[in-house]
Design a binder for these strands. Sequence first.
RNA 1: UGGAGUGUAGCUCAGCGGGAGAGCAUCCCCUUGACACGGGGAAGGUCGUAGGUUCAAUCCCUAUCACUCCAACCA
Length: 919
Amino acid sequence: MDKAYNPESFESRIYGWWEKSGCFKADDASDKPPFMIAMPPPNVTGALHNGHALTVTIEDALTRWKRMCGFNALWMPGTDHAGIATQMVVERELAKDGLSRHKLGREAFIQKVWEWKEKYGNIITTQLRRLGASPDWSRERFTMDSGLSLAVREVFVSLYEQGLLYRGARIINWCFRCHTALSDLEVVPTERKGHFWHVKYVLSDGSGELVIATTRPETLLGDTAVAVHPEDERYKKLVGEKVRLPLLDREIPIIADAYVDREFGSGALKITPGHDFNDNEIGKRHNLSVINLFDKEGRVNEHGGPYKGRTIAEAREKIVADLIARGLLVRTEDHAHSVGVCQRCERVVEPTVSDQWFVNVKPLAEKAIAAVKLGEKLSLAEVDAREDAIKLVPEGWVNTYYQWMENIRDWCVSRQLWWGHQIPAWYCDKCGHITVSRTDVTKCGKCGSIGVKQDPDVLDTWFSSSLWPFSTLGWPEKTKALETFYPTAVMETGFDILFFWVARMIMMGLHFNGGRAPFKRVYLHAMVRDEKGQKMSKTKGNVIDPLDIIRDFGADAFRFTLSAMAGQGRDVKLSFDRIGGYKAFCNKLWNASRYVLMRLGYVTAEGLAPQPRTDFTALTGGKPLGEWISARRAKLHPVNAWILECFEAAAETVHRGFEEFRLNEAANEVFTFVWNEYCDWYIEFSKSLLESPATADETKVCMLYVLEQTLALAHPLIPFVTEEIFQHLPPRHGVREKEPLMLRPYPVAKRAAPTHASQLVGLWKNSIEALRAFRGENGIAPKARPKVTFEAADAAHAKDFQAGVLYIKAIAQLESLEPESGKLKGDSAAAEILSEGVKFYVPLAGLVDVSGEKKRLEKEKADALKDIEHVKNKLAKETFISKAPKELVDKEREKLAGFAAKLAEIERAISKLQKVAAN
RNA sequence: UGGAGUGUAGCUCAGCGGGAGAGCAUCCCCUUGACACGGGGAAGGUCGUAGGUUCAAUCCCUAUCACUCCAACCA
């Protein structure tokens, strides 16, 4: 083993070994309990970002944990074809060569996209491997592979047959750059600066006028009414009258609708049902006609009269100019408002009425609401035990989820793209009938004409993703995999795709699997931000590339950082300092292991006498380490018993952390155990224990066993370094040669009541700390080896301390530590150090500056006085004595007595010192 | 407008009814035989603010301020 932890030297080697030996594979026919996570399929166009890294960290940790716990763990990987995104990328490539998809034609273009996908589509999965992800790659799926396409068709046709999917003209969001319809979710409301134009609409009979404010004056060409509030006194009498539409001179009615806000603008609203969602609703209520103003390229069509052929921007400009010319523009204000922008290209989208395919999701949503409502009432364990309930974690998301689900609108699923699942509907040239079919159609289902053409549009990418948890398992075939793994255990993803993906998976999963949910738990992780808490973005230039982090710190340090910072409901603020700190942790674990292996003779270091190799197969008499220890647990040396207890307590906490999606708790526990217990104390104690023949053997076994178990405990979080170290451990029973740690059993969680052993070790640790503090605060040279005596408070303590003298002496670096004979106690030139149940005497001569020691004691005195006052105040309250639990009152009284005794000791020590100072 | 969350040491965060914790940063000492990606010591906090419940509140309740996120609206 190298002296320093160097992740680059082994991470890729270890990964290759795991993958080659089939460690990631799940088994359809296993009799182990199933556990499945469907990995959110990254876009084929994607490059690894920190969101992926967080996803992988959490899901891989959960999968590895469950796998080691004896589950048939399947982490299902795959990629998403990402319709618009991928098509745009390939079109951009083509543009470089002066080509376009239209020049190429549909078939050739799709061919090109497939070629692009073959070439670049697995970059992202390669990157996931660098993080140590352990999905079953042999099952990797792609949303457009044949099996998944079959599932898509099955769902489309079934929904159609059930009357839940239809084609119709509805108002949708249209992007003029991407030339496609978008769902509500793909439109991002964005704050933009604009204007507020106040326009005069003159009454037809010339008796007056209305002023109407608008941010989109060009849409007035499509107005079919003006609406006022029915209760608005100003306009009440005008309802039923008509106004002349400015510029076009069309006559339109004034209608009354409670939607209008009297306070806003002039209180009169122009109604454009063709290009505004709310106006469209109002139009339906009042039977208004719908005018579609723009062609697919975003130019004004024949309904725009003289403005025909202009783009939206041009039309707006001209219309404003014309309004001014005719004196119809009352005034213009600056106005910041939010407009819908295309998620992909950021261009302002236009609500437009268009023929599209829609899914009537309302009935599906009701079931989806019920499943989550049920989950809300149940505990995690109860949800796990059934198939119809879903638990959202953190639970705060449920309200948002209900609100969205309750107000859900029909889902526009058709996209005017070429890359995606082409819609399985065929139109008859002759009779116009639409044939929707699972298999390709060559003649009309109604008139039998062979003049049929398939719908050129494709489905929304999220349509296929919504089937992911079951389509990847072979659905609609009744596969063994589906039977084994559905419903999946956990859906883990970012909250930003709760509606895009999670909600739709729930709806589809329940609907197509007989009311069985696609997953039992949903864990929504937070956002990864930069260290100032800002969103990472290319424009801000604060993007941290995960691959750079892995290169500089190693995948384990990165994963450990993400785990440690991924508290529920809190964003992850990535900072290099923190990652560096966790790299130091990996180094610590590495070196602690080196220490163990050196002591056992399996690692030799420069300048160090080689130790003989410990033969564990002989030492443990053919038993695995754990069994050997269990058999003599009660007789172990207190230090060995103590570290085992510590480990068991840590294991329990780590289990709970994983169980409740609190990876930060798991990570912190691992960190604290390894560093603050195993390294800071156990290893220090072991140095003495290994010296003594009475304790050497059992210490070797315990040291190795706890290390081995610790590696297992930490493995889901830091898989590489733990595996690498594990492979260096000496041969022993119960572990096959070259057995991968990742397939070893996970440490069992059980926390026993602390025994006398931990109490003893606790006392020794306290003593050592008191002695160290004395040294530190008095500036005693590190090389000095004082001769110290001790005096215990009572016989029991005396015995306990006597048992620890050897270790206290060694760790506190003392020349000697012996029971006080009365000599130093009476010596005014000896310092007194108080610790729990014991007092130490240190000769001051040549060691300590008396004034410094006095200062230390004065501080202790002040602390003691504060303690006493605090407890006294508490005990002075009659209500406390009478109402607080009796044990607590007794405890406080004991505390007071203890503090008082301590104070007396301190005061005595001080007065003693004063004598010295006086001399 | 509605919903959720967060305000604790200089920074990043744990804790959540019985006297405030960690990591990093700071200061002092140490190249001690695992580790300077290290060891030892120290300093640092009216736990956002104001009320209330309780014998007891950083923790529970109410109000308030600040920030963040989600959803809706935005003529």
